[in-house]
């Protein structure tokens, strides 16, 4: 198990800016954490899980030249505007 810090580059590909310092709200238990601090599992894709309840927050799968992103477990994301 890793944490959000380890997939900072992948998340920056998805969002176009760093989101590890952003805070996310878990749609399941409403806990709020920095994305850098959430649990990360790497297999065929990357799965971010809530460190409090274990629910899936986000899934990212790469295939060829596409990234598939599932955000249904993340109620909201709050980040500093540039």
């Amino acid at each position: 198990m890793l944490d959000g810090n380890a997939v900072a580059g992948l998340l920056q590909e998805v969002f176009g800016t760093d989101v590890t310092a952003a805070t996310g709200t878990c749609a399941s238990c409403t806990a709020v954490d920095a994305v850098g601090a959430v649990h990360v599992y790497v297999a065929a894709g990357v799965v971010l899980r809530c460190p409090h309840c274990g629910s899936v927050l986000m899934r990212v799968v790469r295939s060829d030249k596409r990234l598939w992103v599932d955000l249904r477990g993340l109620r909201s994301l709050q980040l500093e505007s540039i």
Partner: peptide
């Protein structure tokens, strides 16, 4: 290489 990345553990 690509980066730097990450803004949390800084």
């Amino acid at each position: 290489v690509r980066g730097p990345v990450g803004g949390y553990f800084v």
